[in-house]
Design a protein around this nucleic acid. Sequence first.
RNA 1: CGGGAUGUGGCCCAGCCUGGUAGGGCACUGCGUUCGGGACGCAGGAGUCGCGCGUUCGAAUCGCGCCAUCCCGACCA
Length: 582
Amino acid sequence: MRYSQMFLPTVREVPSDAEVISHQLMIRAGMIRKLTSGIYSVLPLGYRTVKKVEEIIRQEMDAAGAQEVYLPAVQPAELWQESGRWSFYGKELLRFKDRHMRECCLGPTHEEVITDLVRNEVKTYRQLPRNLYQIQTKFRDEVRPRFGVMRCREFDMKDAYSFDADEKGADLSYEKMFKAYTRIFSRIGLTFRPVEADSGNIGGAYSHEFMVLADTGEDALAFCSGCHYAANLEKAEIAKPGKVDPDPAQFKPLESIHTPDVRTIEEVSAFLGVTPQDIVKTLVFAADGKPVAVLIRGDEEVNEAKLRNYLGADSVELATDDIVLEVTNSPKGFAGAIGIKADVYADYSLMNRINVVMGANREDYHVKNANLGRDFTVKAFADLRIIKESDSCPRCGKPVRFARGIEVGHVFKLGTKYSKAMKATFLDRDGKEKFMIMGCYGIGVGRTVAAAIEQQHDDQGILWPMTIAPFHVMVVPVNVNDAKIAAAGETLYRELEEAGVEVLLDDRDERAGVKFNDADLIGIPVRVTIGPKSLAAGNVEMRIRRTGETRTIPVGEAATVIRDIVMGELKALNDPNNGHPR
RNA sequence: CGGGAUGUGGCCCAGCCUGGUAGGGCACUGCGUUCGGGACGCAGGAGUCGCGCGUUCGAAUCGCGCCAUCCCGACCA
């Protein structure tokens, strides 16, 4: 490709509405342009990278036995009503009516459509397992689109769905996808980590997220310094402490204390001269509308996802002031476990604790020396808090570390959630009708591209891994008005293309500085400079974008040497043994 | 939805407080010089100052309303 012919509008200044680095660089490098909030056009340079990412995904999905389909973006409400998500999925689901006033939506995901397709066509265990995937536009009407294509409303996603006859097969399908994802992100050249994750809206038995490690990532994750345990912070477990039966002889008498206008943990600890660890925080939640109280140590935070999963609720949120008043007989700030009108659950952090401070369920009063069993009861102890860096690994006990990541892929073991709701059944070997066991597996294509930039860039621009670089090599004749230089550029351009290398020839009549800066910005891995001095000596200069390493190569050997470098890099990234997350 | 900020040629911004001619840099067109890390000179083209209403002799500037965009929060396969 000739730069002079390419629709490649680079931008010198940082766009005022782009905050994160990948967003800035994608705009500056002429990869994307915004149409409206959360909706982007992809330009030729950006689309070349997108297509490469998609191709790697296709190769690995096909290799894992999945087959590509293409499902509709517009979907009828009936299917969503059948699965129960028409009412459950909030405003993120863009709904509209067609001319016959039939309710429709733009697909934010395709469990309903695929389940409908498969249930109509698959009738026997002989047709299972099946794994179907697509790369297709999704629309999610995000409340707050941000960070460019990282959290946008319209985006391309690879989504795969597996259908199995039994649990064992379903686990195997999951395993295959897990491995395929590991290969995909390795080939793309990302530093990533699969982590245990919450299943959220999609539901199902268990799931893993594939996180690209980057300080700017939206997600926090915890991983063990000793073993392989890694989990999203909202999922990360905390080991159950050993239970010791308290000795009631150590119980001090319950005391009620006047604590006027003392509400927060900080205020209570200051007022009573105790540490936050000595205080029991009582939080009232509404779980599917029903009030639930959670007891937790004063310096800890409740993990709402854990609470939601523990209760098996669809939604959990902090209770409104009205509900707090109703269950505690007092305004916010004085809730406690004694006499509260709600089911009470306690976090593990309170196990074995005696003589604690908590709210009195009476305005301006707290109690001291409250004891479980004597003064109040709990329905159960559970792991309900957010993990902290001082916690230890729930598997092996070694210290945990924290990192930030960008969720580029998510695999779910769905089980029979959708097959039951939508009656996707088959006839098994034993002649019995059974529900198919499903899995679903997503990769955000655009987000993967953005994550690659977020992780690999410098002050000058993008540092593309060879496998997804829009071009492998950029040839820069320093001055196209010099006939010898221009001719040498044309020759090398032709030779490299014939050698199967993707080349961008910067044949623009621009000064060298402009060309160099654009080359760095768009991040082509190898740059070849053709200048008067080196050319007179029969050489060209090659520069590796990522390392800055330069090499002088005789003109006659340039095409071969550069081809070998490009192919070597591609081979290293595509190596089947390159399947280990870092 | 709550909080904050911003809307001025394609891009980045000044002007607004203190009302009266709409400016700079980049980019663009032409000519000339220049040519290895974002050149220089000369001459040009290009703007309903987000939209509406109001105040005023007169509004980019003051007031009210709306819209859009971005950030923080809530929310989020």
